[in-house]
Design a protein around this nucleic acid. Structure first.
Lengths: 402, 402
DNA sequence: CGCATTTAATTTGTGACCCGAACTATACGA
DNA sequence: TCGTATAGTTCGGGTCACAAATTAAATGCG
């Protein structure tokens, strides 16, 4: 019996146009608020009538509210629209030793923030975090919460909904997402910290039209988030972006991932501490904060260690420049406090790696302290604000799968 | 004067749904031809009436023609539809020493094929190639030509419309595209050879639903084409994918790109020849074909050289595995003739580089000899067949730029 | 042969949506 | 007070997908 299987390709219905335009308008409001409907029409290219219908819908959905009335040299006054700040997002940044959590509004503004120790086991972490989240929900009863967004030093597989790779956490297999969802009753979104930083840059940064961007997070380890063609590259099991675990020397020092000589082994905070301890006689364990402070005070061994780290960061980035040719590389990490000093070292390495034309811009994150947490706001809002990606550029030729 | 600039974001009009569905139906016909309208409706999920209207349009546009009538156990017989093979594409694969060109139909089938020497200068190349193309157009007067697609060992910048990086061609700056367009009167599309192979795999291969794929071409140099989230990654100036010029050893042998110790220096055909000449006393210059023949005949030095090459290929791929986590890596090149022998070497290296779960499949191209040329067919058809990418999978969360 | 059954394809009516033009609502200044 | 400029709404028209009804064509059974 010749029977065709049901594949159900993604087709457009009569509502598809509205879906797309709703996303466009909502994102324009987000980026340019407060903004009038007339301006939305001008900027988007949609008709004023269409904009009115769409904004009416957005106001019904409570994403948008009326703001104050504008004032023009002549003519009727525009009614400004802005996002509804009564909608909150619960955000958390999970790190090996401590976890930051808080409440943010839809504009990525943090309304409150607190820090807790990260327990070693994922089960305890989920439990403590969920308790804190429930408490925050009580405190902010005036908000309607959209969900929980968590950034973590690991990779989250969308298929299996599990954290699949987090060498710096050393977690056993555990359904972290479900645990928090059950304990809070909220939808939870997990994402790698570097990917979260990408979202933060793209959503809340000044880089509006960047299509190709790589974020490098330097902390315990080295993480990278890859943004290509205006989308996050996740790869199989969400593992795309592990430049930190590309081996630069098969005989190098062992890495937490099980390999040897990974970029992370040379460019992370830990690496700098190792460099320092190798050269100094001091036997007491120093924290990276301590190392930064020493460098600030002019300690030459500390400066030397950070310089080696900077060279390692830069030379690893050459790999990123050649392989992905991003427009920008954004660096996030405590190390960036010393950017004025070590930035040129990194930039020189990157420039040497550019095969043609100008090397990519290398710069610190727009708001370094906030990047991870803000990114999780975008993570949660993503499914409401964007159906696919649509940048303001003209269409580029693209491949068609299927 | 407060005036909002005209950004004109990409919005949906009332015709957007049709555009999208037209693309879906056209691509379904391409992949499953011959196919009836009833089956198209079943597979796509569109209504039969909608499919009828769309196919009517496609037939008017002469992309689709009626095929023969089907036969079912009972009921009215379906009319099969298929692509119109009267539409041809002029294709060429430009390589440092020789250029292959030909005529293909919309299904990527080559109707004729010929080879010419590649002159050293881009001007002469354009001239000779255009003359051959004009001749082919005369020979195939029965076809309506859609355009010219050319793959080349270099990168093409869509912004400036120039070939920007082709170390193995050593071309001075020259507007190659315009030269051929003027000399033939056809629209010309240029693309990197590895990217062309990606298109060939995705369009004509059996891998229908792969979203993340990397093609590695091994010839004079090593090229890679990156396909992520169902799209070709082009990067700034079209430079994404130059894994071949990531330096593995800053003190290694010099590379044609000006760097040192690039992956290409260890993994290309040239590298294998170098390995061979280093170990053998033979002073006569061998071609890579010759080396392959020696290996086939059991020459141990030739086998050793190819084995070193295979190891180099595999170890460079670990970089790709870690950084992009593709589902598949496809290899194209003369070297693949010996895949049964050296495949396991490469696979073992790649498996060692996988950080979590199964390593990506590594395999030869679907039709190795055709990959580049077929890819250029897709390159030319791209703008007619696909408005953006739509795979059959459910929506994944994605970032929204702007 | 006639008729029920089955499947393909078309026709027709409906609702969603965008567009553009006309219209209403405000504001300012001569 | 009226002309002009700007914001926002209303309404008619066109495109489109959808669903149900209809037509077309083939099979097989009584």
């Amino acid at each position: 019996m010749r029977r065709i299987e049901f594949t159900n390709t993604q087709v457009a219905s009569s509502e598809t146009a509205r879906d797309i335009n709703r996303g466009v308008v909502l994102n324009l409001i987000r980026r340019r608020q407060p903004i009038s409907r007339a301006d939305l029409a001008r900027v988007s290219g949609l008709q004023r009538s269409t904009v009115s219908l769409i904004t009416e819908q957005l106001i019904r959905e409570r994403w948008v509210v009326y703001g104050h009335t504008g004032r023009l040299p002549r003519g009727r006054r525009p009614t400004f629209l802005r996002l509804n700040e009564q909608r909150g997002i619960l955000v958390a940044d999970l790190r090996p030793t401590q976890t930051t959590l808080g409440v943010a509004d839809v504009n990525g503004r943090l309304l409150s923030q607190e820090v807790m120790q990260t327990p070693p086991s994922p089960r305890d972490t989920a439990e403590h975090l969920a308790a804190r989240i429930r408490h925050l929900m009580q405190v902010h009863r005036d908000l309607v919460f959209e969900g929980v967004g968590i950034s973590l030093p690991g990779r989250f597989d969308l298929e299996t909904q599990r954290v699949v790779f987090a060498p710096n956490l050393k977690w056993p297999d555990f359904d972290f997402k479900a645990a928090i969802e059950q304990a809070t009753g909220m939808r939870v979104e997990l994402e790698n910290a570097a990917n979260a930083c990408v979202l933060a840059e793209v959503w809340f940064g000044h880089t509006e039209k960047v299509r190709d961007l790589v974020v490098v997070t330097i902390s315990e380890g080295v993480g990278t988030g890859v943004f290509m063609n205006g989308q996050l590259a996740r790869g199989l099991h969400g593992m795309a972006g592990e430049f930190g675990h590309v081996s630069l020397d098969p005989l190098g020092p062992p890495c937490s991932c099980g390999g040897r000589g990974c970029w992370e082994v040379y460019a992370s905070n830990r690496a700098a501490l190792r460099y320092y301890h190798e050269s100094s006689q001091a036997s007491d364990r120093l924290s990276f904060q301590g190392l930064l402070a020493l460098a600030e005070a002019g300690d030459s061994l500390a400066l030397k260690a950070l310089d080696r780290m900077a060279h390692a960061i830069g030379s690893g980035m050459r790999m990123i420049v050649a392989s992905l040719a991003p427009e920008e590389i954004v660096i996030v990490g405590e190390f960036m406090k010393h950017w004025p000093r070590f930035g040129p070292v990194i930039e020189a390495e990157v420039a040497a790696g550019a095969l043609v034309g100008m090397p990519p811009r290398v710069r610190p994150a727009a708001e370094p302290g906030m990047a991870r947490l803000r990114g999780t706001v975008a993570l949660v809002l993503q499914k409401h604000f964007g159906h696919g990606v649509r940048t303001a550029e003209e269409e580029r030729p693209q491949a068609v799968a299927l």
